Computed example of a mutant assay.
Amino acid sequence: MRYFEDIEIGETRAFGEYHVTEDEVVEFAEQYDPQPFHVDEAAAADSMFGELVASGWHTAAMSMRMLVEGPDDEDERASMGSPGVDELRWHQPVKPGDTLSLRTEVLEKRLSESRSDRGYVKSRLETYNQDDDLVMSWVGNAIFERRDDE
């Protein structure tokens, strides 16, 4: 188990490989973000993107999947959830056929002042496409269980 105490400020990790399909882009958008440039190729061709692109919310969901699945060598994490994210930005559109990957850097960590069983970790998460172009970034705020309840 990877607990709060095991996480180091400045630690970086690179992981994930997520292949984006056209069917998935359209299916997600039809259900959650049905704007024309996410669901209709002809409409997308006339948009500022010039082609079908994934919803930013879909990009966030794919990134979350990679984050939860973690690196191949990572033990189970003692994650207790998250109170939210800060600074969410979509830098480039994600297109069908792209392959995404994720990089993280731990920015800070602190013990909870009111709950001795947990600590808070703030990390920058960046999602890249196969050309190493930054497509999305956010600062995540996570809650981790402490190994020792001191």
Rank of each mutant, 00 (worst) to 15 (best):
D133E: 15
E11Y: 00
L88H: 01
M48Q: 13
Y18G: 09
V25A: 05
G81Y: 05
V135P: 05
D149Q: 13
M136H: 05
Q130G: 11
A78S: 09
V85A: 13
F28W: 01
V135L: 04
A44S: 08
T127L: 01
D131E: 09
L52E: 04
R147L: 08
L88I: 12
L111D: 14
F4T: 05
A54T: 02
V121A: 02
V106C: 12
K122C: 05
S137W: 13
Y18T: 09
Q31D: 04
E41W: 02
R13G: 11
R89V: 10
M1D: 03
A29G: 08
R118N: 03
A42Y: 01
E8C: 03
Y32A: 10
P83V: 10
D6E: 04
A29Q: 08
G140P: 02
D33Y: 12
Q31L: 11
D46W: 08
A42T: 04
E22I: 05
E74A: 15
V68H: 13
E69A: 14
E5S: 06
A54P: 07
D86S: 12
L52C: 02
D132V: 08
P96V: 11
V106Q: 11
V121W: 01
T104G: 06
P96I: 10
V20L: 07
D6M: 01
D132S: 14
D133Q: 15
M1V: 06
T59Y: 00
D149L: 11
R103W: 08
R65E: 07
R147K: 15
S123F: 11
F49K: 07
A45Q: 14
A61D: 03
E126H: 07
F4D: 06
V106E: 12
M136Y: 01
E27Q: 13
L52S: 05
G70C: 06
E5C: 05
R124I: 09
G10R: 11
N141Y: 03
E74Q: 14
V106K: 12
D148T: 11
A78V: 05
P83C: 10
G10I: 10
D73K: 00
R13S: 14
Y18W: 12
G16Y: 02
Q92R: 15
M62W: 00
W90H: 11
E126P: 04
R124P: 06
E8I: 04
Q35W: 02
D132R: 12
K95L: 01
A142R: 14
S47P: 03
H38C: 14
A60I: 00
Y18I: 07
E145F: 13
L134K: 09
L107T: 05
M64N: 05
R103T: 13
Y128F: 10
F37L: 04
G10N: 12
Q35V: 02
V121C: 03
E76G: 15
D73V: 00
H38V: 14
D33G: 14
A61Q: 02
T21L: 02
E22C: 08
D117M: 04
M64W: 00
A61M: 02
V135M: 05
R2P: 04
R2N: 13
E69L: 14
R118H: 03
S79M: 13
H58E: 10
A42Q: 07
P36F: 08
T104Y: 00
V20P: 08
M64A: 01
F15T: 02
E74C: 07
G10W: 07
D72L: 15
D75P: 14
G81K: 03
D73T: 00
E108H: 01
